[in-house]
């Protein structure tokens, strides 16, 4: 079963659909034309470039080139996580990179090598989209984990100091904040798994069905990707927060001011 192509005039028609929300926003007094325009333009250019790159990547199917693409994705994700979490990249970049790289490589390798088993484990058709999807979700989780943890620690500085004064080690004193941050980071994935298929049809499954796959096959891939997202998000968040503890505190267990970006 072939997926129907969308011709250029129809694509133009699609952009026309944006006029409707644009008019509605303008009517309620929200002047977001510039932001919406930039976002649609960026999305289009970025996806066109990705399309060109992926086409080349699939055509060459070179393990080094595929690896390089994943490395670029990891570096961009690393810097994006730290920027959105309000932490300084020069202190945390290596820790965050190690956390996300190890969890993404582990779960993608597990999925591709042990579960899907393509002829070549480095097959771009599998590893690039799967690693990208897992990384995208992992990124959200890590932003929440780091942001929640360090903002809770600053907000509850007295509570943290009290635990230290009562004999807690640094790890014992941060543990309540650590648990809350991990819970907040993985909750969206847990909620998403619990309602999957009921509230919305997941994007990957919809894409596969539109691409001509049998629904049953699409379901199996969706389950696989959700399990990998959950696993890698949990692993990455725990490693990331744990590593950050060695960087963010001074020898007296006090949170260093200089590691956090001023709001």
């Amino acid at each position: 079963m072939e997926t129907l192509d969308i011709a250029l005039p129809q694509m133009a028609m699609l952009y026309g659909l944006c006029l409707l929300p644009w008019i509605l926003l303008w009517l309620i007094g929200l002047r977001l034309s510039r932001d919406i325009g930039i976002s649609i333009l960026r999305m289009s250019i970025q996806l066109i470039l990705v399309g060109i790159y992926l086409k080349t990547l699939f055509m060459l199917n070179n393990p080094w080139l595929n690896g390089l693409w994943i490395l670029v994705m990891l570096i961009v994700a690393d810097l994006s996580i730290l920027k959105r979490a309000g932490l300084k990249a020069r202190y945390f970049a290596l820790a965050t990179f190690t956390a996300i790289a190890s969890s993404i490589l582990f779960s993608t390798a597990y999925l591709v090598i042990l579960v899907i088993q393509p002829t070549h484990f480095y097959d771009a058709r599998y590893i690039v989209p799967l690693a990208g999807m897992i990384l995208g979700n992992c990124l959200q989780g890590n932003v929440i984990a780091l942001e929640r943890f360090y903002s809770a620690l600053r907000k509850n500085e007295n509570e943290y100091a009290t635990f230290l004064m009562l004999g807690a080690t640094r790890w014992e004193a941060v543990r309540p904040f650590f648990r809350d941050a991990i819970k907040a980071a993985i909750n969206p994935t847990i909620a998403s798994m619990a309602t999957m298929g009921l509230v919305s049809l997941p994007g990957m499954m919809t894409g596969q069905i539109l691409g001509g796959s049998e629904p049953w096959l699409a379901v199996k891939y969706q389950i696989a990707i959700m399990i990998c997202i959950f696993t890698s998000t949990t692993i990455a968040c725990i490693i990331n927060l744990k590593f950050s503890l060695a960087i963010a505190f001074n020898a007296f267990d006090v949170l260093k001011d200089e590691v956090i970006n001023k709001p």
Partner: peptide, 15 residues
Amino acid sequence: IRSCTAYIGQEPVLG
């Protein structure tokens, strides 16, 4: 020092 010391502030955190 921390294991020998009790610090009690104006609004202690009971935790």
